[in-house]
């Protein structure tokens, strides 16, 4: 199954390079809206490789990874959520399509992405950010997005699979004819860490009743492996909240 996914995504990538197609009206009309994670015995999040084809350096980094030390959220609950971790979100997202860009709002962390549809390469001084720099285009009803400049040391927050500054994330969103399910296949190409691209997939369902709720973040303090929380201070803070 993993090989099949890789082939599907590889095929999509080949097509991306050759494509000059513009937006597909029906696809644009179908994409905007709020989407929620799907329950299939557990929240349907992401399928991915059972074994990550790591380079030796990546293996060493993975084995040395300690989330208690390496995840910025240990020190700051309100540290920005990052791509690609955000693709795992179990909270709603909202997609808005405009002429030159697509905005994806994530409830989690109040994060947002802009996917530029003008085909422009990132500017020379493009900084590395939590969500990176994304360009996309429509291709036979699918939205294909390529993201670089991701400021994320790992693929997901807690698990330690390293991600280099040169990593490229390619996403393909689409709906099958007659279906409302939003499907995503994405591929991480990071030769510094993985000897072959990593392929993942997930789905969302549209919702007419859900909304992306505002996300006012309140930190519960740093996490220390030797000191308990300052309960008096924490109590005062919590009691003062409306």
């Amino acid at each position: 199954m993993i090989a099949r996914r890789s082939l599907v995504v590889a095929s999509a990538l080949t097509t991306i390079a050759a494509s000059t197609a513009g937006a597909q009206p029906s696809a644009i009309r179908d994409f905007p809206g709020v989407y929620v994670a799907v329950w299939v015995g557990a929240v349907e999040i992401i399928t991915g490789p059972e074994v990550y084809p790591m380079t030796d350096a990546a293996r060493q980094a993975y084995e040395a990874f300690d989330p208690f030390v390496s995840d910025p959220r240990r020190l700051n609950d309100c540290a920005p959520e990052k791509v690609p971790t955000l693709l795992w979100t179990a909270n709603p997202i909202e997609i808005e399509v405009q002429a030159d860009r697509i905005d994806i709002s994530f409830e989690e962390g109040g994060s947002s992405r802009v996917i530029w549809l003008n085909g422009a390469s990132p500017p020379a001084d493009q900084p590395y950010t939590a969500v990176g720099y994304s360009v996309g285009h429509w291709e036979e009803g699918a939205l294909v997005v390529q993201t670089t400049h991701m400021d994320s040391p790992t693929i997901v927050n807690d698990l330690g699979h390293p991600l280099s500054a040169d990593a490229v994330l390619t996403e393909r969103y689409w709906k099958e004819p007659g279906e409302t399910t939003l499907r995503l296949e994405f591929q991480i190409n990071d030769p510094a860490n993985y000897t072959e691209p990593l392929s993942f997939s997930r789905i969302w369902e549209p919702s007419e009743t859900e909304q992306v709720q505002p996300w006012e973040c309140v930190s519960l303090g740093t996490r220390d492996d030797s000191e308990p929380p300052d309960f008096d201070e924490l109590t005062r803070m919590l009691e003062e909240l409306e």
Partner: peptide, 18 residues
């Protein structure tokens, strides 16, 4: 049987939990 989903779910939410 549920471990892989649990791991993925734990990655999905905020979860700065060790």
């Amino acid at each position: 049987p549920v471990l892989s989903l649990f791991r993925l779910e734990s990655a999905g939410a905020h979860h700065s939990f060790a």
